[in-house]
Computed example of a mutant assay.
Amino acid sequence: MNDELFIERIIISFFVAFGVILGGALIGGIGAFLVNQPPMHKINALSGSLKIWALVAAIGGTFDTFTNLERGFFEGTHLILIKQLIFILSAMAGAQSGAMILQWLTQETIS
């Protein structure tokens, strides 16, 4: 995997996770409003509970990441292991960034 593709994939992982948190929580807030629940509280709660799904969506939702991690551990290809960990960290950073923005907008702590 060349460096350009690697950087692109890191950026895309970040923004996919970021988008899953923002989109899911905001649309869920609209749903909460429609069923007469407090939308700001629901947006905040959803931003916390969608983090794992944002991570799964950002890394592709397949077992390729886990296969590459296994190859890195057992076959000694440390570069692949490091790249996969960077992809996961990028997705986690995107999910956390989205949740923090929603926390700032709703003025509540992440539940």
Rank of each mutant, 00 (worst) to 15 (best):
I43G: 01
G61H: 09
M40W: 11
I12W: 09
A58Q: 06
V16F: 07
L26E: 02
I88W: 09
F15E: 02
T106H: 07
F87T: 07
L102A: 12
L46K: 03
M1T: 01
L34M: 14
Q84R: 10
A58V: 00
F73N: 09
L102F: 08
A58P: 07
D64S: 14
S111Q: 14
A95E: 05
L69W: 05
G72H: 07
I12M: 02
F14L: 12
E8Q: 13
I11P: 02
I30P: 02
F33P: 00
M40N: 14
M40F: 13
D64P: 00
A93F: 14
S13K: 03
V56H: 00
I80R: 07
L105N: 03
G29C: 07
I30V: 15
I52K: 11
I82L: 15
F66H: 08
F63Y: 01
I43C: 03
D64E: 10
M92F: 14
P38F: 01
L5G: 01
K83S: 09
L55G: 08
V20N: 02
S49V: 07
A32E: 06
A32P: 06
S111E: 13
E70H: 12
S49G: 12
L22F: 05
V16G: 01
L22E: 01
L102Y: 02
E70S: 10
L22T: 01
Q84V: 13
Q96P: 00
T67R: 13
L89N: 10
V16D: 01
Q84A: 12
E70Q: 09
I59V: 15
A93K: 02
G31M: 13
V35W: 00
G19N: 12
E75W: 00
G28Y: 05
F15K: 06
F87Y: 15
I30D: 00
P38E: 14
G24H: 06
L34Y: 11
T62I: 03
G31W: 04
G29K: 02
G61S: 08
D3F: 11
I30A: 11
G76Q: 07
E8D: 09
T65V: 15
M40V: 03
M92H: 08
G24T: 08
A95T: 06
V35G: 00
Q96G: 00
N2P: 02
I110D: 03
A93C: 12
V35Y: 06
G72C: 06
F63K: 04
A99Y: 09
I43L: 06
G60E: 09
L85P: 03
L89Q: 05
L105F: 11
I52E: 04
G19L: 06
V16K: 04
V56Q: 04
F18C: 03
I10V: 15
L55S: 05
T109E: 15
Q84F: 01
G29S: 07
D64Q: 11
E70R: 11
T109M: 06
L105K: 09
A93H: 01
I86A: 14
S111W: 13
E4D: 08
A45Y: 06
